[in-house]
Design a protein around this nucleic acid. Structure first.
Length: 497
RNA sequence: GCUCUGAUGGUGUAGUCCGGCCAAUCAUAUUACCCUCUCACGGUAAUGACCGGGGUUCAAAUCCCCGUCGGAGCACCA
């Protein structure tokens, strides 16, 4: 490799490195450790890809470590879906990252209990049996709960009763003492543990009734697991401030923390939320998480979009705290970059109209190339017997010529194509348009599943040679992923133009 | 009501900390043209933005103030 090329590559690397801002104070830590903390309530939608994309990119940059922690501490309202744990890990793998460690909060309940006990002994937490609305009222006016001054022994006793499941849901909580007059009401004496009657779906955790809230669980874990930088959404803006009280009591250093806004994706009719998608699947309006109409990672994966294309787009969003709209066209452009060179070309005729081909100048077959930029890959062979299929919109006016790509020029006369014998110069001169086509016989029937619904068509015979999982381009239509070659025909998933 | 937080073209982003090199970067999008037996790829060009108003300054996207608009939290959700 010559020096100029090396320099150029280095320059490229550098440019890539700086698409995301540097993390703060990385030099203060031996190893940068980042975590994604998903709630496993379903497979991921497109928006979820941002966290692993950014974290994975940072871990690569700093040679750090990537931790996944399932924050599955609400068996009821955010009930985990038992199959989602693996589905999410697969989604991460699809995006091209491999977590160094995987935790489940529901495995670590005893640890949270231990820290709660410690906190109680320090006198910094109290059990509170006030109904939620009543406490909320007091909090608004900055009045402490009457339970706030209980002595630690009583608190500990009552907390152990919580742990033992002696209370019903709603009867008792453990609150962290913060500052009941804090100017930000969101920080006043927040709940650390509450009772939940519904058993956790994971067998290992099914016996617990006393569950930590996110701010407690996540705060304790981030420290214990050695997270150096926390990246999270603006919905958790106040979390760090809440958890800071905990860190102060325990004498811990709070990790660096960054926030970002929400991501919306254009181009989908469906609302991008796990629960909405789940409802649509349950109602039978979507075939599953990988339905091409679903805004999920499983869906775009099946459509042949590389995880890398998604990661690139996510990185392009940067780290701003404002809400952002991600255009699918950005993902498509990235993907086209990746697949165009490799994707061989084929013809698919949708809604084909059969038109006889006549004339002495009629070739026996068409031979379009597999790839216009790679002659070495050779040609396809499309035999023509008596007729071809073309798309209705492509049929020229009576008396006009059209070029059947890879085959030759024909004139449309009396509902038939008459071979003219013209050479390619008629196309180069701009007199004649070029269209794709298929033979009338021997085609492969194809169902193309798209985000806008299914389309059927007939593909040229050579399409049968493609492999399942291969990305090909149907000329003048777009890129598709071959999903299945079945008895009834083939199924492809449409990626993008 | 209280508390955070933000605002650069259609979209995303750089620049904002440390004012001048910013008549504002890059990508995407759209539109033309070139290339081409695809409406792909590649190439060229065009389009298009500093939320508003004051102030400080020789000089403001950048600093200050006031508005406007947006997002978030004040859950026994994550």
């Amino acid at each position: 490799m010559d020096q100029a090329l090396v320099d150029e590559l280095d320059a490229d690397d550098e440019a890539d490195d700086h698409t995301l801002p540097d993390l703060p104070n990385v030099e203060d830590y031996e190893t940068v450790r980042l975590r994604a903390a998903p709630n496993p309530n379903g497979p991921w939608h497109l928006g979820h890809a941002r966290m692993p994309s950014v974290i994975g990119t940072y871990t690569d940059r700093y040679d750090g470590e990537f931790v996944i922690r399932f924050d599955d501490t609400d068996p009821e309202t955010k009930r985990p879906d038992i199959s989602a744990y693996d589905a999410i890990l697969e989604d991460i793998e699809y995006l091209g990252f491999e977590p160094d460690e995987v935790y489940r909060a529901s495995d670590r309940i005893e640890t949270y209990y231990d820290h709660a006990r410690e906190l109680i002994e320090m006198g910094e937490a109290y059990t509170c049996d006030l109904p939620a609305e009543e406490f909320s009222e007091l909090k608004r006016e900055g009045t402490p709960s009457p339970n706030r001054d209980k002595d630690p022994e009583t608190v500990l006793e009552e907390f152990e009763a919580m742990v033992d499941g002696d209370y019903e849901s709603g009867e008792m909580v453990l609150r962290v003492k913060t500052d009941i007059e804090h100017k930000n009401p969101a920080l006043r004496d927040w709940v650390a543990f509450r009772m939940i009657d519904t058993p956790h779906p994971r067998e290992e955790a099914a016996d617990y009734r006393c569950w930590p809230m996110l701010d407690f669980q996540s705060g304790v874990d981030d420290h214990l697991v050695g997270i150096t930088h926390i990246i999270r959404g603006i919905d958790l803006q106040d979390s760090a401030k809440r958890q800071q009280f905990l860190y102060d009591y325990f004498g811990w250093e709070y990790p660096e923390v960054l926030h970002w806004g929400h991501v919306q994706i254009d181009a989908y009719d469906i609302k991008i939320s796990t629960s909405t998608i789940k409802e649509l699947i349950d109602a039978g309006e979507l075939d599953g998480w990988d339905d091409p109409r679903a805004p999920t990672l499983q869906s775009v994966r099946r459509r042949g979009i590389h995880g890398e294309a998604i990661v690139d787009s996510m990185i392009g969003l940067g780290m701003s705290t404002t809400d952002v709209d991600l255009a699918m066209s950005s993902i498509y452009a990235n993907n086209r970059d990746i697949v165009d060179d490799e994707a061989n070309r084929y013809f698919l005729v949708r809604d084909g109209q059969e038109i006889p081909v006549v004339g002495d100048a009629k070739p026996e077959a068409g031979h379009p190339p597999l790839h216009p930029n790679h002659e070495d890959r050779g040609d396809r062979e499309i035999p023509v017997d008596d007729a071809v299929l073309v798309e209705p919109d492509d049929i020229p006016a009576d008396g006009e010529r059209i070029w059947l790509k890879g085959y030759g020029c024909v004139r449309y006369e009396n509902d038939a194509f008459v071979a003219t014998g013209d050479d390619i110069s008629v196309v180069r001169d701009g007199d004649v348009g070029v269209i794709h086509w298929a033979p009338a016989d021997d085609t492969v029937s194809v169902t193309m599943r798209t985000p806008d619904g299914d389309v059927t068509g007939a593909a040229e015979p050579a399409f049968a040679d493609t492999a399942v999982d291969e990305i090909v381009q149907f000329e003048r239509i777009g890129f598709v992923r071959v999903d299945e070659h079945g008895e009834e025909g083939s199924v492809v998933y449409y990626a993008h133009p």
